[in-house]
Design a protein around this nucleic acid. Structure first.
Length: 392
RNA sequence: GCGCAGGUGGUAGAGCGGCCAAUUACACCAGACUGUAAAUCUGGCGCCCUUGUGGCUACGGGGGUUCGAAUCCCUCCCUGCGCACCA
């Protein structure tokens, strides 16, 4: 019973129509079908996705059927929920590539093989068959008022921002996914509430079926309300990040982020999380525990321990890490060019870094970008980037 | 279709003939301080050469006026609001 309670509360914001109803359905012993929709708009899944995947994993462990729905069709239209990103249409090839890496990343959490393997579906399967007649019929299930009522449309109306007509179709498409998949439960972040409820309504009207909707909490700083996994803020922790990067990014989280990340993105027992947070001492050490836990979950325990050691060595003790990227150069290449080769996008940017004493060569500030680099030089660029020079 | 108001850097939003590569805020980068946290302070934030009162590209697209335009004019495209249309 505890597992069930955990399942219905951890990371969960709201359950529609109600928690009690879903609890009844679950304890009846019936196996439910539950799905999560993801848009293959980029190649990475991040900790925000992990929240949902972990909940799904708990369902999977109880024997329920999991479907990961890839929104390969919807990705081409662009979800207005994320209005900042004016999306360019993705090609079929891009979608395919993104999906491949998606599955690999999701597989760190869900089982895609063995007994009760999670299934994968693509919504282009039914959406490409949609025609105008069906679309009109589908649209008749909603009213203009219901659409406009949506928060984000209200806001845009208020500020005279455009609302594309096609944006009304998005919830229809996503809602129709539920009908096509004929599922019992859908899960998604609270930002997807509107779309998921559209699917609930459709499923009821087409198939007389009550779909449950589970909305999960978004990862945000409880103090500022700011999103923790935000592309523009560079705090994105991707599931396929290299162990050391992943570790470092967790360490860079604001302290307040420890609780939500531990609760939503790990399998640590809730009691242990409380214990960890309740510990006295340097909050950094709490974060070290969390970072280790995260890397352990998405890589392995052994790798996590190593990443922890590397981090302490590099950043706490300020030693040069033992492993780093190498840059292969010809003899006589300048430091400036090495910095460029290490991923700095423009010369101006690189020159700025030199001027700001952000470039260190073998532990001393490099002043002159024109000096040649030699074999074995270690360049530190900014706070966290180290490269080793290899002359070929 | 008509009228009015708009379209500026990652975002918001100033500028309304030269002092504009463009105020400011947020985001971002670097340095200091630290716990690679946050907060704070300092600097930076188109590109290129380099370090100069430098060159190039840029304020929706195109054309024009002017010694000189993000700023004025014409035209096209786009958005919002209102009106008209509504078999």
């Amino acid at each position: 019973m505890d597992a069930l309670k955990n399942l219905l509360t951890r990371s969960v914001d709201t359950i529609y129509p109600s928690r009690e109803a879903l609890e009844r359905a679950l304890s009846s012993g019936k196996k439910l079908t539950i799905y999560l929709g993801v848009d293959p708009t980029g190649p990475h899944l991040h900790l925000g996705h992990a929240t949902n995947l972990l909940v799904l994993r708990r369902f999977q462990a109880l024997g329920h059927k999991i479907i990961l729905l890839i929104g390969d069709f919807t990705a081409r239209i662009g979800d207005p929920t994320d209005k900042l990103a004016a999306r360019k249409p993705l090609t079929a090839a891009e979608v395919k590539r993104n999906f491949k890496t998606f599955k690999k990343q999701a597989a760190k959490i869900l089982n895609f093989s063995g007994p009760n393997a999670a299934a994968v579906a693509f919504n282009s399967k039914w959406h490409t068959k949609m025609n105008f007649e069906k679309l009109v019929e589908l649209a008749s299930h909603f009213t203009e008022q219901q659409m406009v009522e949506r928060d984000m449309f209200q806001e845009r109306k208020k500020s005279n921002k455009p609302i594309g007509l096609h944006e009304f179709l998005y919830p229809l498409m996503q809602g129709y996914d539920s009908v096509a998949l004929d599922v019992d439960v859908e899960i998604g972040g609270t930002d997807q509430t509107f779309n998921m409820l559209a699917g609930r309504k459709l499923l009821r009207e087409y198939k007389n079926k009550e779909k449950f909707v589970i909305t999960t909490k978004l990862l945000e700083n409880p103090k500022t309300g700011r999103k923790l996994m935000n592309k523009s803020e560079g705090g994105l922790i991707n599931l396929d990040d290299k162990p050391n990067d992943m570790f470092g990014k967790v360490m860079a989280l604001p302290d307040e982020g420890v609780r939500p990340v531990a609760e939503f993105c790990t399998e640590m027992a809730m009691g242990d999380i409380e214990k960890m947070l309740g510990r006295d001492g340097n909050p950094r050490d709490t974060k070290l525990s969390l970072a280790t836990e995260i890397v352990k979950l998405y890589h392995s325990e052994k790798i996590a321990v190593k990443a922890r050691e590397t981090w302490i060595k590099t950043f706490s003790k300020k030693e040069t890490p033992s492993e780093m990227e190498t840059v292969r150069i010809k003899k006589g290449t300048t430091l400036l060019e090495v910095v460029r080769a290490a991923g700095i996008s423009s010369n101006s940017e690189a020159m700025r870094l030199f001027a700001q004493s952000a470039i260190k060569r073998n532990n001393t500030v490099a002043q002159d970008p024109k000096k040649s680099a030699i074999e074995g030089d270690v360049l530190k660029i900014g706070k966290k980037k180290f490269v080793k020079v290899l002359v070929v």
